[in-house]
Amino acid sequence: MSNGVVLETKNLTMRFGGLTAVQKFSACVEEGHIVGLIGPNGAGKTTCFNMITGFYVPTEGQVLFQGADITGLPPHKVCARGIARTFQNIRLFKNETVLQNVMIAGHVRQTSPWWGKAMGLPSAIREEQNLREYSLSLLDAVGLSQLAMEQADSLPYGAQRRLEIARALATNPRFLLLDEPAAGMNPQESEALMAFIRNIRDRFSLTILLIEHDMKVVMGVCEHIWVLDYGVCIAEGEPTAIRSNPKVIEAYLGEEAPVHA
C-alpha cells in the first residue's frame, strides 16, 4: 500500500448568504486509509461532502484529487474521475431492481454509445453483458445476490444501505465517501458494518472517508479523524487522541460549568 495523498482540500470555505457553513477546511487523505469526519449536528460535515463531490461549488478554496484540481467540476465528472458517495438519507432508484441500481452506476464506465444496445451493436451488447455480470459479482460481494431481481425499495433497511455502497462501488471509484453508513443500525449491525467497510477497502483497494455519529464505529474503524464544529476544524488526529481532546468533548457535551466554591 503506497502512502501517496489521494485527496487534499485547501482552505475549503462555503458560505450561504451570511452563514459560513464550512470555514477554511484543509485536510490530506492518504491512500488506502479509512478516515472519519465527525462533529455535532449542523457542523458542516455533509457540506464538506457536497463540496468534494461537486454538488456545491466552494466559495473559496480548492479540492485536489490525485493531484488534479477538481474544484467546481459537476458531480458526474467528479464521479468519472473516481470519487463515489452514498447519502445520509438513502437515495436508491426506488422503482428499479437491485441489479438495475448497480448497473446504472456502472454506466459511467460504459463506452458504447447510448443507442448501441437498442440498435443491436454487437460490441454494445457484449459490453452490457459484461457489466451485468460484473454487477452481479458486486452484489455477491455485498451479500445481496439473492435479492438481485427485487425492487430496491422493498429491501430491508440494512440491505438498502449495503446496496447503496454496492452501487457506489460499481462506478469503480478510488475514493469512497460514506455519509453516516451506520445510521439507524443496532449494535450488532454496526459491528458487521465495520468489518464490511474494512473488507471493501482491502478488496477494491479504496480510500474511504466517512461521516458518522456512532462513536463506536468511528473509533473502531477510522485511522485518522477530523472534528468539525460550527464549520471550523477544531481537532484532528488519531482516534485515541481525539477521544481525550478537551475541545472535542466540549463541542459534544458542552462546556464544563465553572465550579465556584
Binding site: F55, F87, H107
Partner: peptide
C-alpha cells in the same frame, strides 16, 4: 427516480 443520486453516480 432520483436526479441527485443519478448525478452522484456519474
Amino acid at each position: 427516480d432520483d436526479e441527485v443520486a443519478a448525478k452522484a453516480m456519474g
